[in-house]
């Protein structure tokens, strides 16, 4: 185990953070992030063998700049993660956060699937001693890919009641516009932010949501027309 894989005390975390004294904003990667970026744990560097894993999950798209793929092997008697490997096409933040996610799932002899499914991006970020604000967005793939892999495992092992169904998610919190709304707008022919705005008045409520909405438009456009 690498020294930085250990859970951190709050003082250690403060030491590792680099914070702009005036704005309080973290602006560069912490030492832990750099360590995981340059020495990613649990990478799958060769094609998996037949039977090596129980399930695989892939999310993201090259057009959006991130693709994440996670393989899992589960011990059926204990429900613990016996092995977890990953690959990513992504920036430093995506690589480091997935590496840390893989450590959190496999530490202490592998945690149980139920617990692993509780790991959220902010838990990974805490263990990484934070990420620069504008990079948080890039670090949210690992748990999504993992959930897909877990669902595949649940279905394959007949545990249908455990499959996690995803719901629509609010993108613009002021107008309560969800990713589903944007998907529908794209299906109705919207191609640009302006098109979607005309249909939904989205982005008028919360300007901060615009970059994400643009990515959603690109994503759904690729999905249906790419």
């Amino acid at each position: 185990m690498h020294p930085t894989d250990k859970k951190l005390t709050s003082t250690q975390m403060q030491d590792a953070e680099i914070v702009n004294e005036r704005t309080g904003e973290k602006w560069v990667y912490s030492e832990i992030v750099k360590d995981h970026f340059f020495h990613p744990r649990n990478l799958l560097l060769e094609d998996p063998q037949e039977g090596q894993f129980d399930a695989v999950g892939i999310v993201g798209s090259p057009a959006c700049g991130d693709v994440m793929k996670i393989w899992i092997k589960v011990d059926p008697t204990t429900d613990r993660i016996a092995d977890l490997k990953w690959q990513t096409f992504g920036c430093g933040s995506a690589i480091a956060s997935t590496s840390m996610f893989s450590v959190m799932c496999t530490e202490d002899g592998g945690i149980q699937l139920t617990n692993a499914l509780q790991i959220k991006p902010q838990h990974v970020m805490e263990r990484l001693a934070g990420l620069p604000n504008r990079k948080i967005h890039c670090s949210v793939l690992a748990d999504k890919a993992f959930r897909k892999a877990a669902n595949e495992y649940f279905r394959a092992s007949g545990q249908h009641q455990r499959v996690i169904v995803e719901h629509a998610r609010v993108v613009d919190d002021r107008l309560n516009i969800t990713d589903k709304d944007i998907e529908e707008a794209v299906l109705e022919g919207a191609q640009t932010l302006e098109d979607v705005q005309r249909k939904l008045k989205v982005g008028v409520g919360n300007p901060d949501a615009i970059p994400e909405i643009e990515q959603l438009i690109r994503f759904y456009h690729e999905k249906y027309y790419g």
Partner: peptide
Amino acid sequence: KTIGSGASSETAKALLGQRPHWETKQ
């Protein structure tokens, strides 16, 4: 030029029918 056409067919297939990866920034 088509958006996303650069992805290999295997990756593209794997990505079809899924939901976007970025989720709630809690």
